[in-house]
């Protein structure tokens, strides 16, 4: 293990769905204040890796370790399950399709978990929610229902909802893929601001501009493996492998 010890670590994760092997011994560490961007063709296993780290999937082999403590293993024992419960809400996630709860207002979406999970008093949770809504520039929508918001607004609310639990790391699963280009920009702006503030982030994305300019490290995945990893924009300036070169070529053609 490297020094300083990683905030969250994927340690040799293999994931199979039936006969279909999606990840093969993938290891990835995310340090505090890292903005790791995971890129690669669709079907390369990026999202599955993220879902393993979010504890939504159990690895077939390998483990997820948070600050030195295993939190996910194949058929986890009591100790691992307890550790997972303890850190569950420290790992935030932003989904491709936002997944706001449609029967709750924006504010209710933000205060639900802080009240139920962290047992915060309501007024405290509301105060936090309002300051986060101000941060994503949606305070005036606090009483609106998700269906009334644009996709970009919904995703910004979803980011605020994740932040309301003050997570140590925020996972983004193609957070802008379902959005029109002009709506992407407002979401990317929020993500960029978070990166600037030192939020630890793991970002699965097709936004090469974001990976290049905001990411501290870029990880290229293909066919369930990490093919290449390089700090900052080095991956884009000088991709080492042929597969990465071919992948980047598509974006040069655009």
């Amino acid at each position: 293990m490297s020094n300083p010890s990683p905030l969250i670590l994927a340690d040799g994760i293999t994931k199979r769905f039936g006969a279909n092997q999606v990840l093969t011994r993938v290891s990835l560490e995310v340090l505090e204040r890292d903005v790791v961007c995971v890129v690669g063709p669709s079907g390369s296993g990026k999202t599955t890796l993220l879902r393993c780290l979010a504890l939504l999937e159990e690895p077939s082999e390998g483990r997820v370790v948070m600050e030195g403590v295993p939190i996910s293993t194949p058929s986890p024992d009591k100790q691992v399950k307890a550790a997972a419960r303890d850190v569950r809400s420290e790992i935030g996630m932003v989904f491709q399709h936002f997944n706001l709860w449609p029967h709750m207002s924006v504010l209710q979406n933000l205060i639900e978990a802080p009240i139920r999970v962290k047992k915060l008093p309501r007024d405290k949770a509301v105060a936090i929610a309002e300051s986060l809504l101000k941060k994503v520039d949606l305070l005036e929508k606090r009483d609106a229902y998700p269906a009334r918001l644009s996709g970009g607004q919904q995703q910004r609310v979803a980011i605020a909802r994740a932040l309301a639990m003050s997570p140590k790391v925020l996972l983004f699963d193609e957070a802008t893929s379902a959005l029109d280009p002009e709506l992407r920009r407002e979401v990317l702006a929020v993500m960029r601001q978070l990166a600037r503030e030192g939020m630890t982030m793991l970002v699965v994305t097709h936004e090469m501009g974001f990976a290049r300019h905001v990411g501290t490290r870029t990880v290229f995945m293909d066919r369930g493996e990490i093919v290449e990893a390089a700090p900052g924009s080095a991956f884009f300036d000088a991709p080492q492998t042929e597969r990465a070169q071919r992948f980047l070529q598509q974006f040069a053609d655009e």
């Binding site: 569950r88 989904f95 997944n99 709860w101 139920r116 962290k118 909802r161 994740a162 639990m165």
Partner: peptide, 26 residues
């Protein structure tokens, strides 16, 4: 949608809380 439950899970809601607060009302 399954994603609504996953969002609850990631935020730390228990399966029972998720069912009562997210699934049942919808």
């Amino acid at each position: 949608p399954k994603g609504h439950r996953e969002a609850a899970q990631v935020l730390g809601l228990t399966p029972l809380q998720s069912f009562n607060r997210i699934v049942l009302p919808q």
